[in-house]
Design a protein around this nucleic acid. Structure first.
Lengths: 141, 141
DNA sequence: TCCTTGAATTGAAATAACTACAATTATAAA
DNA sequence: TTTATAATTGTAGTTATTTCAATTCAAGGA
């Protein structure tokens, strides 16, 4: 996916985030690579482009993005927090063979969960995480 | 929930796990306290009862239980692996106010997800994780 | 242009969850 | 009782993430 920098700047501004080079790089990477990368992966990929980039900045930036609702945290496995710039309602599929994480988009207009489980009185929902596990077509079964 | 020790021993044996005092204590705690505890919580709770218990044993034991499909791992937040001795298909609800994790059971006989998202050709599913986030009745909204 | 101020970035050190490993202890079979 | 195997333990890692103080950057006013 090719991403226009001017467009990225507008999207950051729209969420009240001033667009520093580091922030643009992280957001641009997430937009261009819907692979749900960890902070570590982002760091490794961007380091050649921004040699001064520090891991702390990557963490700071991601935390800022999450707090401003520009990207979502994706929790697939313990011990690795992943990030997703696609804010549409969708589920994830983790292949237990190759460890890749795939997006599963519902049919247009439908939510990922047709019907939410019944909630106790007084409970309110703000988010739904759905992650399937199994084998992708490459890894067979 | 009161749990009979003889019953626990049978359940361990049924999965090919020899019932040491430590294993019985961990499994009994999980059965009696459906609070999806972390290894750390289990350790803190059991230490007074088994003063020699080590954290390594708790981790070993939980990993063994998971590999023998006696308990399930529950992934709610990053950085903390939780465990659940209830093997029925059910969803979880994490209150972002008090951080408690609640069970959400579907109607009898129904799966948690009525309809799975459409999968690409050749993909096979072995497990479904569903976790809602929001506020419980105590924490209001 | 220079100065000031606050925001953003950085690196080093700390923390937390978890794992590896070698030594000890318990269990069970011969 | 001896022996072999399994389970437990403590210590010392490892890895992901956070804290924090110092530095750098960028914008606005004198």
């Amino acid at each position: 996916m090719k991403v226009d920098e001017a467009e990225l700047i507008l999207q950051l501004r729209a969420k009240g985030i001033s667009p520093s080079p580091q922030r643009l790089a992280v957001y641009g990477f997430l937009k261009a690579n819907p692979i749900h990368p960890t902070a570590d992966v982002i760091m490794k990929e961007l380091k050649p482009l921004l040699p001064t980039l520090s891991l702390t900045t990557v963490y700071n930036t991601l935390k800022l993005f999450v707090s401003k609702d520009l990207v979502h945290e994706v929790i697939i496995e313990d011990g690795e927090l992943r990030f997703d710039a696609d804010l549409c309602d969708h589920a994830h599929f983790k292949c237990t063979g190759c460890d890749k994480v795939f997006d599963l988009f519902p049919q247009k207009g439908k939510p990922v969960m047709e019907k939410l489980p019944e909630l106790p009185q007084g409970f309110t929902v703000t988010g739904v995480h759905v992650c399937l596990r199994g084998k992708c077509s490459e890894c067979g079964n």
